[in-house]
Design a protein around this nucleic acid. Structure first.
Lengths: 344, 344
DNA sequence: CTGAAAGCGCTAACAA
DNA sequence: TTGTTAGCGCTTTCAG
């Protein structure tokens, strides 16, 4: 039904290749002819068929971005940054949501494969071997995960987890729980590894509770187990879980940070709005989105560039942590004051 | 680089059409041959090129979904519902974010055009005439807007706004402000129209403040103007603005609901978490997502079906509204108690 | 059941 | 500067 290049050529009395050039290499066609072609095209409502063009050029100028859960406020800043970076480079981003489901992830890579020039895999849950296999079908950049041989941009949650644990032990906490994330999450493994090491170094006990769905409900429903674990502080896999946990504890009559300190990871905007405001590890999500787009696009020019970029994280101390039973400055002081006590 | 249908045919000693059939019409090929083809394909890592297939069949089995702002928590439930509905019908959803920018919207429709079988336009900001024009390029279903000749699913925010105003006037409020939404928003116009009518019917004054960006910041920065408007109640274009406004008022020392009542629209999950919990108009976002997918897909079979579906909204009374100065039950009673007073 | 041939809408050498 | 030709990877008649 829509007009094709041939319709325009006919209506205009030129060959189809002239029409083609008018749109893909205008400088190669006589200005006068170009004007006529453009007029005919306009008149017929002609639009180049991007799919057909891609079939021959191999370039769609689209990028796929797969996220684990579009409802998680962690992702939008990353998506927005990727979009803006892509737009600068004359590309468009197609976002897909995998529902935290590995099999959906695979299906979606296939669906995206020839509609985009590459896919950004954000926090994928599938196996390394599957990712490697899929990377033969379409260029891949992995975010929040390391897969040998594939370009990746990771946020250093290990370092973040270490900072969080050091913050807690510095406040005098010795019994700490870790609410781990979903099965298959590289980030969750990193956090666990680094938090474990940091706890050991400070001679604190780390109790791992999980795996858990990385959602508010996931955190909320762990409140009871946290209470039974008899810890004085908790590090959660992400802010959503931390916020859910705080609500759950609240329902149990346990106060944060007076009774239990809670630290999240991500620094989503919501963590500034809750009461208490959440102490958390800020991850550079926007930078990650931008970097991933850049890596994908330069990867096309230069096949050997499979660098793995690591972005730093930082601890943001707010109101959900306070001194524990073994605090050198004594309980009752604020988190900040306690820190100073430790530092001196 | 990736294997094509021809590679498989050669490796297998059959014609390419046999390979084609093996994947697109397996019942038409001898089980034995089929097995051999499948084995070769597997071995070569062959995957049918969906773009090439689409070029000839005209079907991509993908659906585009354009939202105004992916960071707005209003959209994820709609997106999730659309995805799940699409998956049931063997389709995939590609989400794009327009950043509330009409020109980006147009660009994205073109980018999606031949990569998807249709586009769901969610709260588009562009002009009706442009939407109509784009609908000749790719099948469109409009959500939260009415465009003559195009299938649409709208949530009845007009009715919702009326309920909200009636709730406020029932509580004795006579000076009400409306924080309107962004320019170009059909929803905002509907709200304004309906709220205006409802206020008139109740002999209340409605002061329209706006247009505003439909974000938390948009609401927060209006706090001062709301104060100067000397109203006792506010209806906001959406929950995000309502929540932002409450924060802004809080910073000004104005208490909600004691000093000013605030009502939002959407019932995003966040509105249950804030203090005070937000009174709001619940919109059936999930149903809208599902319905839009259904309409797009059946629209293919049956060209004349350009129905416009309207989904009902309902008022959810929480803690951000309380009796105003003219309340029949007298100020100081709770919203619920006041309502009973009105009913009797 | 399988092969041959045409063609989806477009681009890219190569000639003219 | 323009037309000619070949073909991207696939599906789909139509014969055999």
């Amino acid at each position: 039904m829509p007009a094709t290049i041939r319709d325009v050529a006919r209506a205009c009395g030129v060959h189809i290749s002239t029409v083609s050039r008018t749109f893909s290499a205008p400088h190669l066609v006589n200005p006068e002819t170009r004007g006529r072609v453009l007029a005919c095209a306009e008149h017929l409502g002609y639009r180049p068929n991007k799919a057909a063009r891609a079939l021959i050029t191999g370039r769609t100028h689209n990028i796929g971005l797969m996220v684990a859960d579009i409802a998680n406020p962690f992702f939008p800043p990353l998506i927005k940054a990727a979009e803006s970076q892509a737009r600068h480079r004359d590309y468009h981003i197609f976002v897909t949501d995998t529902n935290e489901d590995p099999s959906v992830e695979e299906e979606l890579v296939h669906a995206l494969a020839k509609q985009v020039d590459g896919v950004l895999l954000c926090s994928p849950r599938m196996s390394n071997s599957l990712i490697e296999q899929l990377s033969r079908e379409v260029p891949l950049v992995v975010i929040n995960r390391q897969v040998t041989g594939l370009p990746a941009v990771v946020m250093d949650v290990g370092q973040g987890a270490r900072l969080a644990i050091e913050h807690l032990t510095g406040l005098g906490h010795r019994e700490i729980a870790l609410l781990s994330g979903p099965r298959g999450s590289w980030t969750s493994r990193e956090i666990r590894r680094a938090a474990g090491a940091a706890a050991r170094a400070a001679e604190a006990t780390l109790t791992v509770l999980g795996p858990n769905p990385p959602t508010e409900d996931g955190g909320q429903s762990m409140a009871d187990q946290v209470r039974r674990a008899e810890v004085t502080a908790v590090l959660a896999y992400n802010d959503l879980m931390a916020i859910g946990l705080i609500e759950g504890l609240d329902a149990l009559g346990i106060r944060v940070p007076q009774d239990i300190s809670v630290v999240g990871i991500d620094d989503i905007s919501l963590s500034r709005l809750t009461r208490p405001k959440l102490t958390t590890v800020a991850t550079p999500t926007a930078a990650a989105g931008r970097t991933a787009v850049d890596m994908l696009l330069q990867h096309g020019d230069d096949r050997r560039t499979t660098a793995q970029v690591t972005l730093q994280t930082e601890l943001v101390i707010r109101d959900s942590t306070s001194p524990g039973p073994h605090c050198p400055a004594g309980p009752g002081s604020t988190a900040a004051a306690a820190l100073e006590g430790v530092a001196s």
